[in-house]
Amino acid sequence: MADINLVTFCCENSAFLAAEKANMPGVKAVKVPCGGQIEHVHILKAFEEGADGVLVLACLHENCKHFWGNDRAEKKVNYVKGLLDEIGIGSDKLSYAPVASNNEIKYSELVKEMIDKLNEKGSTEGKVKK
C-alpha cells in the first residue's frame, strides 16, 4: 500500500473537505474549484508524474454549486478512461465518484478500494519512481 501513488482530484465544496477530515497519509488530494474545472490533461499529467491511480471526486448528484460541474466531471472522466485504454494504461486506474463534504468515511472507502485494486494490478509500467 505504501508504494501506491494515488491522486484524488477533489471539489473544494465537497470531497476536499471530506479528504481533509479523512487525512489519509500517502494520498495526494488536489483541491479544485469545481469538478467541472478538471481538464483531461490534468488527469493525464497526474499519470505522467507517477500516479498509479486517479480518483475524481465531486459533489453529489444535483448538488453542484455550479449546476453541472459534477456531471461534467463524470463525463470527462469517462472520456479520459477511453484515452487510458488507448494508451495502454487501462481505464480501471481512473474512477469518478460523488462524495459529500461530511462523508470522510466514503472518501476513505473509495481510496482503499482503489488502492486494493491497484495492488492487485501492480504499479504503472515505466512510471517515474520518486
Binding site: 483531461h40 490533461v41 494508451i87 495502454g88
Partner: peptide
C-alpha cells in the same frame, strides 16, 4: 492548445508504457 497538451501527454504516457 488544450487538445495539443492532451495529445502530447497521451503520447508521452504511451511511450513510457513501451519503454
Amino acid at each position: 492548445k488544450k487538445e495539443a497538451e492532451e495529445t502530447a501527454s497521451s503520447i508521452s504516457l504511451h511511450r513510457k508504457e513501451e519503454s
